[in-house]
Amino acid sequence: MIRLTINGVPHVVDPMGPESLLTTLRDRLGLFGSKNACEQGECGSCSVLLDGRLVCSCLVMAVDADGAAVTTVEGIADGETLHRVQEAMVNAGGVQCGFCTPGIVVAASHLLATTPSPTETDIREALAGNICRCTGYGAIVRALEPLAAES
């Protein structure tokens, strides 16, 4: 049994063997927002914050997260109010199939919270671990650039 605080809510959960935090979130806790596109840290679609650090939840052994605070995409909005990254992504056409979107929302909101005024190239480098196959990235960058200028 391990204890996790996920999006502010305490959970006690029993991961099976060396399963990943991603598997625990999805298959045991029903939090399907974090996506399972590559399960080897190459696509970023499972990105979460683990005690404030941006990680791929597919590469975190769930038992090693015991006691951690986890923020998933489900915890990014403030209730019904979208985070500005979420709102910008929808408005700018940064969402197509949306499978990469949760990871990008988590990574981009973390970037804006931790990096003052990133340039376009900074944004691109910081999000290089988040693969999107639909958009060619243009619309996502267009969504984030104005927010970066504000941050």
Binding site: G33, E74, A77, V95, P102
Partner: peptide
């Protein structure tokens, strides 16, 4: 217009076949 599935997708609430 914004996509009707846009908001569920950015919130992580859109159900894919794997969900």
């Amino acid at each position: 217009p914004i996509r009707p599935d846009g908001i569920p997708k950015v919130r992580g609430e859109f159900a894919y076949s794997s969900d």
